[in-house]
Every structure is written in C-alpha cells, then in structure tokens.
C-alpha cells in the first residue's frame, strides 16, 4: 500500500508539472500569432480576454450568462453532490467548447490555472500525520507516518470535483463575456456608479499601462538597464517612478479629451442590447431542474 501511495503522489505531481509546461508552451505559441503588441509576455488574464471576444457565444445576452453561471455555482456548492458536480462540469465544458468554439487544449489550460491551489488545499484534508503506523493507508517517512483512508480520499476527490465544477461555471461566463459586458450587467444590478466607472476605467487603463511599461522596459533594456541584478533593481525603480508621472500626465490629457466630448461628471457608455432567446431560457431552466432531480435521486 505504501508504494501505491507514493506512486499516486508522484503521478499527481508529474501531472501538475506537465500541465504547467503545456500551458506555458501554449502561451509561447499563442504570443506569436495574435494581435496584441506585447503578446509574448502577457499573463493569463489577457488570454481569457482574447477568448471572450473570440467566443461564438459572446453574442448571447450577458445578463443571461451571468445569471446562469451564478445559479449553477450556487447549486453546485449548496447541493454538495458529486453527481451534480460532474453534470455541471460536463455541461459547462459543452457550453464553452462546443457552443463557444474554444479548443480543448485552451480550455484545459485555462481550467488548470487553479489546480495547484486546489491540490494543496485538498491534500491537507486527505492526509494526516502521525508517529504510529495507523490509518487505512500509510507511508513511512523517516520518523513519522503520512496516513489516509479510503473515505478521506473519496472526500478529497469529491471536493476537487465540486471546486472544478464551480470554477468551470465561472469560466463559462468569463470565457464568453467581454469584461465591458460583465460590468454592464453589474450596472444593471445596481452596483454603485463609482465602482462601475472605476471598473471601466481600470479595464481600459490596464492595457495602456502595460503598453507604456513595455515601451519603457524595452528602451531601458536597449541601454543595458538590466545588465546585472543591482542595475535591474535600479532600473525597475526608475521605470516605476516614471510610470507614476506618466500616469498623472495621461490622466490629465484623458480628462481634457473627455471634457472636449461634453463629459460632465457622469460616464455613460452605449451598450448593445443583446436579445435573449426563449429557447436559451427554457434550456437553462431544464438544466437547473435536471440538476435538482439528480441531487434528489442520488441523495
């Protein structure tokens, strides 16, 4: 049994590393052909941003998608049932990949982002330590034992399943709805205007700041600004300070530009009305009922 445990652990670790590797590879690959200027070094967020615009279900009504995702998420957690989790996982994967047209490898790479956190979190539930060889399975590690039981492992796997199902519901939303639309849904939900305006501006500004940062970094790099650790630290400080000044200046210019277009203290953007099809609502209702039935029969 001990060897078995060790093998399992090794396998899991290897999978994590492999997936992380695949993910990195995917990104390096993506960077070469999509249009963003700083493609080779952008983080996970921008990949998701790209996917959201490219998704085939991005024309669906955003409110519908957000509500569907949240209802699914709540059901998934509240019902606490592995069958429901599995059903959600499958349904959301179907929506994102088949309906949304995202490729399998990209979907997996996005889904694997939280895997390290999930594994570390759930391992703590399944594994316990002791000085005596107790428990259903145990592993001798020098002067102490790591032990677990079938029940504990089952609990861990169900928990992983639940977390992944919940994550997949939210990913369905983020991978098919551009941020601006999610913000507009929040506006409809009467989130305070201040927060909505901040979100809009921050979302727009992230890309501008990144652009400015990459330009400054490149120009510092071309002048040997990152030749050794000491210089790198110094340059980083310089770039950061400069960024602050540039942001202040840009904020001024932005304000002028907004004022010249009659901005008077209230930021309202034109949003597209996306109709929600009756079929979509019916399908979503059936899905929710099915989840509840599944829970009822496997309780």
């Amino acid at each position: 049994m001990n060897e078995m445990m060790l093998l399992l652990l090794c396998g899991l670790l290897a999978a994590v590393f492999l997936l992380a590797e695949v993910r990195q590879h995917n990104h390096a690959h993506e960077g070469t052909h999509h249009r963003h200027k700083i493609g080779h070094k952008h983080g996970e967020g921008f990949v998701i941003d790209m996917h959201a615009y490219a998704s085939k279900i991005s024309h669906w009504n955003p409110t519908f998608k957000v509500i569907l995702a949240i209802v699914t998420l709540v059901l998934c957690i509240a019902l606490n049932n592995p069958c429901v989790s599995l059903a959600v996982l499958i349904a959301m994967a179907y929506l994102t990949m088949v309906k949304g047209g995202l490729s399998v490898s990209e979907y997996l790479s996005v889904m694997m982002i939280p895997i390290v956190f999930i594994l570390l979190g759930t391992l703590a539930i399944a594994i316990e330590f002791s000085y005596q060889p107790i428990g259903q399975y145990n592993l001798h590690c020098g002067f102490f034992y790591v032990y677990t039981s079938q029940d504990k492992l089952k609990e861990m796997i169900f928990l992983i399943l639940k977390v992944f199902a919940a994550v997949s519901a939210l990913q369905m939303m983020t991978l098919s709805t551009p941020s601006s639309e999610i913000i507009s849904v929040m506006r409809k939900a009467h989130v305070p205007t201040l927060i909505i305006e901040l979100m809009n501006i921050i979302y727009r500004y992230i890309f501008i700041l990144l652009d400015v940062y990459s330009k400054m970094k490149n120009s510092a790099d071309s002048r040997q600004g990152y030749c050794d650790f000491r210089t790198s630290c110094y340059t980083f400080g310089g770039v950061a300070g400069n960024m602050l000044i540039v942001s202040l200046k840009k904020a001024n210019v932005y304000y002028d530009a907004m004022e010249s277009r009659c901005y008077d203290g209230e930021m309202v953007f034109l949003e597209e009305e996306k109709k929600v099809a009756a079929g979509q609502i019916i399908a979503a209702a059936i899905f929710v009922v099915l989840l509840l039935m599944l829970w009822w029969f496997t309780k």
Binding site: S179, S180, N200, I201, Y203, R204, V253, A257, F269, L270
Partner: peptide, 10 residues
C-alpha cells in the same frame, strides 16, 4: 489619449 471605452461601439 482619447479612447476611453472598452469597445469601439461604446
């Protein structure tokens, strides 16, 4: 320095 919204339409 002019574009403020996050879609061209907006």
């Amino acid at each position: 320095n002019q574009i403020i919204a996050s879609t061209v339409r907006a």
